[in-house]
Design a binder for these strands. Structure first.
Lengths: 217, 217
DNA sequence: CCTGGCTAACTTACTTGTCAGTAAGTGCGC
DNA sequence: GCGCACTTACTGACAAGTAAGTTAGCCAGG
């Protein structure tokens, strides 16, 4: 068995544990302060060492940040009993479940909300991470739609594209509102409602919005 | 005639113009670097002065930031011919039009995307700004839904609440994806699709998601 | 006994905000 | 219409704080 990260020969058995401790502290810190305002010293303090110690493990703040992001992905998948993200219509249920689960971990949600938006700026460290992330996720949702549409005898490539982006979008947007005011939005319920709405619209498109404004029912 | 801003006697006629120049530079800078990474010196350079000059006009970075936010709101409303945001079902059309309009101004969209997420962190300068903003916007959408629902003979308070948050959420979320990869998402089209979907779901709720996974149509 | 894990002590690089000073206005009395 | 009093719009220098990263070296486990 090759070690997790190829080159590094991590002698001490406590090392891996310490790294994970730092990673968790980093999630906590980046989540509550953002990646620019959260400092290495903040993180180091949480695990009882100096910021130089953190750098010893991760080399630079940027590397730590990227490891935080992939760490979440890793643990996310581990949560699934079968260790893989379901496809087809099951995916939509999985997304809803994820939304409910997220309502129990504001810290991680906050890291992602803050970092994904930060990543939009010029040459942010995590720019390509998020770019690829959304590409992959949209493709996953698209695939699920294709299975479902075949099942229901519907085909509308354009609708599927718009719906795929929209589903991810509502989830993100609701997280933002929920983080700002947790009591104002029920993250799980609202996500479920919106995802259901979008799925329905793909399967059975209704009349255009403008007809309501004109008073037609 | 009382002067525009009560106390302040802004003698020089060029002052207002310069302030606006700074404001626009700040939008540019905060948009491309975020409010934490964008410095007063960056902004000052764009308008050909020193950072101290900027502080002379706005007092502090925080005040400048808040003025940037309300400046956008002000110019936003000015765009509307009738100078006020429409209510009732018209609001949904207005939101869709806004989404299409936003696709033409990535700069401003980026400021809002970046700042709204930043504002989620601990004691961010713009935290309460965005908190209140979403409260107001959700209430506006809720009102529109109530008019529409009365018109269509539907009542579901819970659905309306979830839908109101969801509509704002999709718009924000789509902006994020669009900023990351403008070619991957059509901001206007996708927003229209999602908003329509959510409105339909309130008016005519469909079967639960789980039924599709079970293969029932 | 050597290497990994860590710290102390810096260095370097910024950033915001303050301050004093200056040049160019503005408006007023005359 | 002119000069004087006063204000505005800055600049340049600097204080104070904070962050990332570097280096030398100590200590303990394997």
């Amino acid at each position: 068995m090759t070690p997790t990260t190829a080159s590094a020969q991590r002698a001490r058995p406590t090392t891996a544990r310490k790294r994970e401790e730092i990673l968790k502290a980093a999630i906590e810190t980046f989540g509550s302060k953002g990646s620019t305002n959260g400092t290495l010293a903040d993180i180091a303090e949480q695990v009882g060492m100096t910021h130089a110690g953190v750098l010893h493990h991760f080399g630079s703040k940027q590397k730590l940040l990227l490891e935080v992001l992939s760490y979440r992905d890793k643990t996310d998948v581990e949560e699934l009993t079968d260790q893989h993200i379901p496809g087809g219509p099951e995916l939509f249920l999985h997304l809803v479940r994820t939304a409910f689960a997220n309502a129990r971990r504001p810290g991680i949600v906050q890291v992602f909300t803050v970092l994904s938006s930060e990543s939009v700026t010029n040459g942010h460290a995590a720019h390509s991470y998020f770019l690829e992330r959304y590409q992959v996720l949209r493709a996953d949702v698209r695939d699920a739609f294709e299975v479902l549409c075949a099942q229901e005898g519907v085909t509308d490539r354009e609708a599927i594209d718009k719906a795929s982006a929209s589903i991810l979008a509502v989830m993100d947007g609701l997280q933002l509102q929920w983080l700002l005011e947790p009591t104002a939005v029920d993250l799980g319920e609202a996500s479920e409602f919106a995802i259901t709405a979008i799925v329905h619209e793909v399967l059975r498109p209704g009349q255009p919005l403008s007809s309501y404004a004109r008073g037609e029912s």
